[in-house]
């Protein structure tokens, strides 16, 4: 037995393995060469008869051959298995429904609140909440809304029995609370429920949600309000949205502006959603009125600030194309599962 014999064995076995077509055939070959009484075992036995000087070289050659053959068998074994000719798997009808744990949804209004608050959080705003039962001072007079004045008509209000307390008609009272308990600089958003005595119909509800935001510091300008609101509108409604500010009146801001975005349905051409105007009113805003600053003890000559407020239902209805506000409070599972 010499090293050249080993080389020819190598070629012979390689050919036999490659020609094998089944697992059984392969196993027979494995036994023939690598089995306990196989060719390699035989060769190893002959090792003892070799002259001492040949032993090391021959030993190395045998080991090398063995490793080579083991590799070849493993490779062939794998290729025979993966050819799938041998074993059959159970049939799976992939048209059957998938099996999974059902996942619930957050209410669409909560999702919109979260999205909006996250946008403002990225801009550096802090989320603050406040009570739903409020005082006249926080809801009206502190915000420069005299109690007996037509400017209050926009804020019809539920009062509590035998109390001077009321259900907040907007989230703005939290402005008063937050400004009284903190010092500028301030950048705050306030989500929450508000209440107005409006009969329930497709577009009105006696309870709805608002998000209020305000920023107070030295050198806050009307143009900053525009910048922040534009960033907001584009984040919610997309980059192509156009925004415009229109003069308006709110007792707690001066100058005041109503904010329109180009209609997301007709892209500004005019449709039934925007009343053929091409614009959708989405929020009210303005520079915080000096009287509000005076009320909370800030110096209006030193600080300026802006504030804005929006109806969450309105945003959600526009965003999702919902046409009836009552759907939000009916909680039909077929509705909830769409978001």
């Amino acid at each position: 037995m010499s090293t050249s014999d080993i080389a020819s064995i190598k070629t012979e076995v390689a050919q036999a393995i490659s020609a094998a077509t089944g697992k059984d055939e392969l196993e027979a070959l494995r036994i023939k060469y690598l089995g306990r009484k196989g060719l390699l075992a035989e060769m190893t036995q002959s090792f003892a008869t070799l002259p001492a000087e040949e032993k090391p070289q021959f030993g190395r050659a045998i080991n090398e051959l063995k490793a080579y053959l083991v590799g070849l068998f493993a490779e062939k074994q794998k290729s025979l298995e993966s050819s799938g000719k041998e074993e059959k798997n159970a049939f799976v009808d992939i048209g059957m429904p998938g099996i999974a744990q059902e996942i619930g949804r957050m209410h669409p209004l909560t999702q919109v609140i979260r999205e909006i608050c996250e946008i403002f959080s990225r801009l550096g705003f802090l989320v603050v909440e406040g009570p739903e039962i409020e005082t006249e001072e926080n809801n009206f007079t502190g915000l420069n809304i005299p109690l007996e004045h037509p400017s209050r008509d926009a804020f019809d209000t539920f009062y509590l029995k035998n109390q001077k307390l009321l259900l907040r008609s907007h989230t703005s009272p939290v402005q008063i609370r937050a400004m009284k308990s903190r010092k500028p600089p301030l950048a705050i958003v306030v989500p929450g429920r508000v209440y107005r005595p409006d009969a329930l119909d497709a577009s009105h509800s006696f309870m709805f949600h608002q998000i209020e935001g305000f920023m107070v510091d030295k050198n806050i300008k009307f143009s900053d309000l525009k910048g922040v609101l534009e960033a907001f509108a584009k984040s919610v409604f997309g980059d192509q949205i156009k925004m415009r500010l229109r003069p308006h009146f709110f007792p707690f801001t001066e100058p005041s502006a109503e904010v329109d975005i180009s209609c997301i349905i007709c892209k500004g051409k005019g449709c039934s959603v925007c009343g053929r105007k091409g614009w959708l009113e989405v929020l009210g805003s303005g520079m915080i009125h000096p009287n509000v600053f005076k009320h909370v003890g800030y110096d209006p000559e030193k600080y300026t600030g802006f504030a804005f407020g929006m109806g969450v239902e309105r945003i959600a209805m526009l965003k999702y194309g919902i046409n009836d506000i009552r759907l939000f409070y009916e909680n039909d599972l077929r509705f909830l599962k769409q978001f």
Binding site: G124, L126, D217, S223, D224, G227, A231
Partner: peptide, 17 residues
Amino acid sequence: GYGLIPVTTPCITPQVF
């Protein structure tokens, strides 16, 4: 005209709370 007011970004003090 409100439309002629530029769009600027306020210098904000980040709220880290």
